[in-house]
Structures are given as structure tokens and as C-alpha cells.
Design a binder for these strands. Structure first.
Lengths: 220, 220
DNA sequence: ACCGTACTTTACGCGGTGTCAAGTCTTTAC
DNA sequence: GTAAAGACTTGACACCGCGTAAAGTACGGT
């Protein structure tokens, strides 16, 4: 943590009046406290439903502290994305997919990863979606992260191609486009969140479509 | 084109009290002028990139006039949706699909309709997407309109089922879910807008997936 | 004792939504 | 011919969110 509370001034015009936890010995530092409350509130009320004042209050801090740490709402969101991916263990899950025994297994692992991971982050993804369309600068930064995600998928499709497991006439680029689209958060939201499908059914559906579209007839 | 212009009762999508449109010799009444500039500006700068003041200015009117006609930004957006669907001739396109000679033809017509219609409205759809996630009241009204769209798709899938053209184990509900998802604006955006596919390729892809998933093996 | 760090308080400027009240101009109705 | 009704304008205000600025306060280390 950092400093302590000077005196719990309470009744600040800024709107704190909270009971500030921030366990000094606990281990949560200020930055994490902000990220935690930001995530909770944003997932609950959406991008425009939460102001930085509210985030700060929930973290037991002043509004300015948020600006001190993240510079802007955009900065907070960007940091939030990285933090959540780290907290939710995205890298570990990706490592599993990369260590698959075959190209087809890697593709299936990618689908499985998505079915497991998306439920953890789709609410935040909805927030980011709005942020993208509200803030061009955020959108630019977001595209970078998405390009990274696309490269992961492209690598698997390339693997398929090199192993001769890609259907005739299917280029790596087209295949990647299809994987990208079928594994998008949008599609998960449509099927699982809005239409009530189970993640198992979602996974089976996506896997089936990808197999039929990407693999040669004998494998699909 | 401000205050003169006598009667000329026209379609009032909103169904509000005073229907009173005015058509100068030119033909565009105030309401339409607002809708037109709103559409242009919103598609260009997004939901939060345009204020009602700017919309009004572009229409050559005062900000209050917008409130007089639509009550709020939400009201304007809702009216805009109806107006655009009417201007773009959605009903006519739907009639074509409904008059298809067979269930499978109707399904294909639905896909074709989407491939033709979505390019005209996907920019506005992005705006509405943000509005939905920023304004719960708008979201509620939006769900109504989407339910209507879903019923159209459900009718076609029901037609398939009644004609015995639905794959074994595929319920009307599941089939409708799949059609809904594959014809979503999101999927169009991913493939055509973001990944640069032609609408023909998009259409062929969606049609293929739907045929393979929905129709029995001999037809798919 | 001193300085740097972390956080707080208070105060602006800016821009957007939504509301109110009064005023202008034009058409319609008596 | 005048009065009422309709359509739109002007100007002002409350409220809230973002972002910035400038002091001020508490603590830790040297």
C-alpha cells in the first residue's frame, strides 16, 4: 500500500465517506485495489455507467489517485486488460494449446481455451467494446492486442497447412479469418449469454464448424 | 425550411401526438432533416462523438427543436432505427424472402437479404450497439425490435422443419439460434468490414455453414 | 532534521444531456 | 382584422463526467 489515511476526513465533497480497506499488511497495493474495483464496477454498470470518482471511492481512494496511477480512463482500461489476462492466467492456457501433439489437436485446444476463458472475460469485453467505439485512441491500442490474438490463431492454421490438414483451396489467411470469427466474443455472447447455450454445446458447435470448413473432407 | 410549411400528414413512426409534418415545396420536413443529419453524423463519429447540438446545427435547426421532436437522444435513436429500415426498404426485402418457393429457398433468401442489407446499416448498428450498452432503457426497446427479427428467422426454420428439411436432432429453437448468430451484424463486421471479405464470399460462407448445420445430409 | 513519495483536498474548464421560460414568426380560425 | 395555435429560436440553468492544476498532509528513509 503506501501511505495511510491522514485522518479519515469523511464527508469530503468529492464523495468518499467510505470505510477504506486497503490492508496495509495484506499485500494489495493501491494500483491493484483500483484495478479490482474498476473491474467489478465496470462489469456491473458498463463503461458509461461508472465514473472514475466511483471507482476511486470503491477502492477507498481519492479520484486524483486514479489519475496519478493511470493518467486517464483509457489508461485504466488498458491496464485493466493486461491485469485481467494475467490474473485469469491466459498465458498458461495458451501454453497448453501450443504444446498440443498435432495441428488438429491444437485447433481443438484453441476452441476449448476459448470456451473456458471467454466466460471469465466477456463482461469486461463488452465494456471494452464500448470504449473502443467511444474513444479512437483506445481503439488503436486495442487493435494491437487483438492483432496479437490473431497471430496466435494464424500460427495454428499455419500448422494445419504445414501438416497438410487444411482443406483444398483454403488459404492460411482465410482459415485464420474463419477461426478468428468463430472464436470471437460476439459469437460466444450470442450463443451462450443471449441464447442460453451451455459452453459445452457452444464448444461442440464451433469445433464442428471449424472442422468442416478448415479440414479436408476425410478429417472434417 | 423552418417554420412555415402547412400540413402534409405523413407517417409518424413514433406514433406520437402531433403528427403534423410539413413539406415545403422541396419535400423534406423538419423531422426528416433531423433524422438525416443524425444518421450521417452518428455513422461518422459514433454515439458519443456526436451531441444533439451538432445534429441540430447540421440540420439547420436549434437544439431545442430536436428535443421538441424526439424528447431525448434515446428517442431520436429509436426513431432513427425505424426510419432507416423504412428508407432502406427492409419490408420489401423481407417480402421477397417470404415469397420464396421452398423452405430452403427461403433460408437462402434470408442469407442473401442479410448480405445485401447489412452493408447499408452496419455503421448505424455499431452506434446502436454502443447506445444499448450505455442506456438500459434503450437496450430494452432494442430487444423488442430484435425479437421481431428473430421471429422472422424462426418462421423460416419452422418452415424447414415442417417441410422435413431440418437435420435429425435439430430443433426449431436451436436452428433459429444458429441462423440468428450466423446472420448477426457482428459476424458480418468481423468478416467483411474487418477482414475484408467480399459480400459474395461472406454470403457463400454463411450459406454453407447453415446448410451443413441445419439441413439433413442429403440436402446439406 | 530533511527530502521524496504517495495520497488528499479544493478548485477550475470543458462539454454533453435534459429542462424551463420567454420570445418570434406564420398559418389558421373566428 | 385580429386572435389563437403551431413551429421554431434564444438564453439560461442544473447536473454530471473527464481531465488538469496547485496546495497540503503523512510517512519512510537517510
Amino acid at each position: 500500500m503506501s501511505r495511510q489515511d491522514p485522518g479519515r476526513p469523511d464527508t469530503t465533497p468529492n464523495g468518499n465517506a467510505d470505510l477504506t480497506q486497503r490492508a496495509t499488511g495484506g499485500g494489495l497495493d493501491t494500483r491493484t485495489a483500483i484495478l479490482r474495483s474498476a473491474r467489478t464496477l465496470l462489469e456491473q454498470h458498463g463503461y458509461h455507467g461508472v465514473g472514475l470518482a466511483e471507482v476511486a471511492r470503491a477502492a477507498g481512494l481519492s479520484r486524483q489517485t486514479v489519475y496519478l496511477h493511470f493518467g486517464s480512463k483509457r489508461g485504466l482500461l488498458l491496464a485493466l486488460v493486461d491485469w485481467v489476462d494475467q490474473v485469469e492466467g491466459l498465458e498458461e492456457l495458451l501454453a497448453v494449446a501450443r504444446s498440443a501433439p498435432s495441428a488438429v489437436a491444437a485447433l481443438d485446444a484453441l476452441v476449448h481455451l476459448t470456451a473456458v476463458y471467454t466466460p471469465r472475460i466477456y463482461k469486461l469485453a463488452a465494456v471494452l467494446e464500448v470504449a473502443r467505439r467511444s474513444d479512437p485512441d483506445f481503439d488503436a491500442a486495442w487493435q494491437d492486442r487483438m492483432a496479437h490474438r490473431r497471430r496466435n490463431m494464424g500460427a495454428v492454421v499455419k500448422w494445419l497447412a504445414d501438416a497438410g490438414d487444411l482443406a483444398d483451396g483454403m488459404s492460411v489467411k482465410s482459415g485464420t479469418d474463419i477461426v478468428w470469427t468463430m472464436l470471437s466474443v460476439h459469437l460466444f455472447e450470442d450463443l451462450v449469454v443471449d441464447r442460453g447455450w451451455s459452453t459445452e454445446r457452444y464448444q461442440a458447435f464451433v469445433e464442428d464448424v471449424l472442422h468442416h470448413r478448415l479440414l479436408p473432407p476425410d478429417l472434417g
